[in-house]
Amino acid sequence: MSQHAEEFTHHLVPTPGGRIHLVEQGSGPLVLLVHGFPESWYSWRHQLPVLAAAGYRAVALDVRGYGRSSKPTATEAYRMLDLVEDNVSVVRALGEESAVVIGHDWGATIAANSALLRPEVFRAVGLLSVPYTPRGGPRPSDLFQQMGGDEEFYVSYFQQAGRAEAEIEPEVRGWLAGFYAALSADTMAAPGAPDPHFASRGGTLRERFSAGRLPAWLGERDLDFYAGEFERSGMTGALNRYRNMDRDWEDLASFDGAPLPQPSLFISGSQDASTTWLADAIKAYPVTLPGLVSSHILDGCGHWIQQERPAEVNRLLTEWLAALPA
């Protein structure tokens, strides 16, 4: 049975960019869990107690801009370099020299770049839902604009300051429910329906969400928690991650095409668009992830993998962690 927010140990740690909110369980080697959009430390509620019971110091954070972590006002304060340094600062503040870092969605990209930029700190990396794609190719904003055609890709939509906030913030709970359902295997639209990753020109993403039931993994209490976090914080800090992709592309130019040599793990869902869109990135793992220990595509699973299939993900994580060098 999943624990609820009030049952975990919460604290704040200082970083150069402010303070990062942490939730911690257990003792032993440090495992740092990094969430994606639009989520929270709470996305790891099923993993924290299991990792703690397996002998690890499991720590989930609110990424900068989310929940109870600091929310700088400057858009450029959310560039990848700053998020990596937040992770390093968390490890140091916890009195540790190194950690295994595991991320989901944007958290997977943050985890990968943490391992890439600070290999002396992050000794292994686990990626959930979003494959490792080394820096390269055209400027991201140019690429995403080309993807839409007569429609607008969600990343381009999110990159426009204030536009997504105007859609989401008047009714956060309903928007989150629709977004979570649209990318969950048991509630996503049928094949051939309008793709919720795109908006009509001048329209909203919400127009593509199907009204109806919540996905099986998302209880009313869970949705209340997520909604409460974003109602308090607003959406801008979370969305600013998308608004720094071109800056990241410039900042990481010296890492163009760089592989991740650390021991790694990849888990994704067969019904996750990231699995199909980035199939070539997964095929390239022998080159880009030379330390890959195991890779898994969970049949019939959507995007919210550690919440949709917690028992299976927990088994894969603990088996991988147990096999890592001390």
Rank of each mutant, 00 (worst) to 15 (best):
A108S: 13
A108D: 03
T109L: 13
T109D: 01
T109C: 00
T109I: 14
I110T: 12
I110D: 00
I110H: 00
N113R: 15
A115C: 12
A115W: 04
R118C: 11
E120L: 03
E120M: 11
E120K: 10
V121K: 08
V121R: 02
V121Q: 05
V121G: 08
F122R: 02
F122D: 06
F122K: 02
F122P: 00
R123A: 13
R123L: 12
R123G: 12
G126I: 07
L127S: 05
L128T: 03
S129N: 14
S129L: 04
V130Y: 01
V130K: 00
T133I: 14
P134E: 06
G137I: 08
P138D: 04
P138H: 01
P138Y: 09
R139S: 00
R139I: 10
P140Q: 11
S141V: 01
S141M: 09
S141N: 01
S141H: 09
L143R: 15
F144Q: 08
F144M: 12
F144R: 08
F144L: 10
Q145S: 13
Q145P: 00
Q145A: 14
Q146L: 13
Q146V: 02
Q146D: 15
M147K: 09
G148S: 04
D150Q: 13
E151H: 12
E151S: 13
E152K: 07
F153T: 02
F153N: 07
F153K: 03
F153M: 11
Y154N: 06
Y154T: 03
V155D: 03
V155H: 11
S156F: 01
Y157W: 09
Q159C: 07
Q160S: 09
Q160N: 07
A161S: 10
A161P: 12
A161Y: 13
A161V: 15
A161M: 06
G162H: 08
R163K: 14
R163L: 15
R163I: 14
A164P: 06
E165D: 14
A166E: 14
E167Q: 09
E167Y: 10
E169I: 05
E169V: 08
P170V: 08
P170C: 08
P170H: 07
G174T: 13
G174A: 13
G174L: 03
W175A: 08
L176A: 00
L176Q: 02
A177F: 00
A177C: 04
F179Q: 13
F179V: 03
A182L: 04
A182I: 09
A182S: 14
A182W: 01
A182F: 00
A182C: 10
A182Y: 07
S184D: 04
A185K: 08
A185C: 10
T187Q: 09
M188Y: 10
M188D: 09
A190D: 14
P191F: 12
P191H: 12
G192H: 11
G192C: 07
A193T: 13
P194K: 05
D195W: 05
D195R: 06
P196A: 06
P196R: 10
P196T: 02
P196M: 03
H197D: 13
F198P: 02
F198M: 10
F198L: 11
A199C: 05
S200F: 07
S200H: 12
R201Y: 04
G202V: 02
G203M: 11
G203W: 09
T204G: 07
T204K: 12
L205N: 07
L205G: 11
L205C: 09
R206E: 14
E207S: 14
E207V: 06
